Simulated scan of single mutants.
Amino acid sequence: MKKIKVYVLTCVGIIILAILCFLPLPVYLETVGKAVNVADYVKVSGKTDKTKGKLMLTYVSLGRATPLLYLTSYLDKYTSRVPEEEISGNESDSEFDRVQTYYMNDAVNQAKAVSLRLAHKKYRQEYLGIYVMSILKNSTFKGKLEIGDTITAVNNKHFKSTADFMNYVRAQKRGTSLEVTYLRKGKQKKVVGKTVKLPGTNRSGIGISLAERSRIISSTKIKTNMDGIGGPSAGLMLALQMYSQLSGTNLKLGRNIAGTGTISSDGKIGDIGGIDKKVIAADRAGAKVFFAPNNPVSKDEKKVDPQAISNYQEAKNTVKKSNLKIKIIPVKVITDAVTYLSKNK
């Protein structure tokens, strides 16, 4: 009898331990990630940058919480507990990963365009189609299209821009049957659905949220391998690394330089999340300078969060609170960073 009791208690203990360690919660833990040398991910004209110093991209570590990890996260002051819906919405983990991969590919694309233009190299941007970011519940294409598909034509009509695609679809009456041609894993497929009323509007559409997919074509070859890193926030540092190699300008001069921010084809630097953790990662990696987006907080953002501050201010606050020695440099466009590195040697 005693042996049975011990056996039962042991089994219960194992079950409880398994729940604590492995049961996924609807919460993600966001904490300090790493700062890595962008030169390890970029080749220009087949060559890797071997000069001294580093231009470093930074990223946060993001993982799903278990009961044990959730409890122990309170022991780390740099860990944030973020509800699942704020991270992935209604997407599955695989769908979330595909969206993050798109963001990284787009960041690489924009960085190529910006760096080639700054270095006075010829290039052109080829429009490839519409990247499916999400699908509404009332869409007749739900279960047919998937997040990550690239729409290349509608009713065999190809488009030169996302705006042309949207205008064509909006012009169709509600309930109109449309044949959509798309690419999935490199294979072309077709599917038929109908236009539906878009929530909160009087317009018709196919019920997807979308992003433009394109590629940069240039005689100067730029190759990247960003396996394992997702999201758009590496855009600025990728562009700086590419420009440095394309122009033959040594921006590093032996220094360790980090930063973050999205980048658009006109060189503007966009805001990102988790900048406090990225500053910590950069400091731990030995960076002496950190570029932070310095865009004003909009009125709409203030309405949602009266305490909202700019990325730059949050980065400054992190340095002060954690007593760091890293220098925070505000940037709004890529030339702000290039000018700073050129003048402060």
Results as ranks from 00 to 15, higher is better:
Glu146Ile: 00
Thr176Arg: 04
Leu178Thr: 02
Gly228Lys: 03
Lys157Phe: 00
Pro199Cys: 08
Asp227Phe: 13
Leu236Ala: 04
Pro232Tyr: 10
Pro232Leu: 03
Gly148His: 15
Lys190Trp: 05
Gln125Ile: 15
Arg215Asp: 07
Ser218Glu: 07
Glu126Gln: 15
Arg174Asp: 12
Tyr168Phe: 15
Tyr127Glu: 06
Lys142Tyr: 10
Lys160Arg: 09
Ala234Glu: 00
Asn225Ile: 12
Ser247Lys: 08
Ile135Arg: 02
Ile217Asn: 09
Asp164Glu: 15
Lys121Leu: 12
Ser218Val: 11
Gln188Tyr: 12
Thr162Asn: 01
Arg174Lys: 15
Ile151Pro: 04
Thr176Cys: 04
Asp227Arg: 13
Leu136Tyr: 02
Val154Phe: 14
Gly193Cys: 03
Gln241Phe: 04
Lys160Met: 05
Ile229Met: 07
Tyr243Lys: 08
Asn155Ala: 06
Arg213Val: 09
Val180Cys: 03
Ser209Arg: 14
Leu238Lys: 01
Thr181Asp: 14
Ile208Tyr: 00
Gly207Lys: 05
Ser134Val: 07
Gly186Glu: 11
Thr249Pro: 01
Met226Gly: 09
Lys142Gly: 00
Lys187Glu: 14
Lys157Ser: 04
Tyr131Asn: 09
Gly186Leu: 06
Thr224Gly: 02
Val196Gly: 01
Leu210Arg: 08
Val132Met: 03
Ser209Thr: 15
Tyr127Ile: 03
Asn250Arg: 04
Tyr182Ser: 03
Ile217Phe: 09
Arg215Val: 13
Val180Glu: 01
Pro199Glu: 12
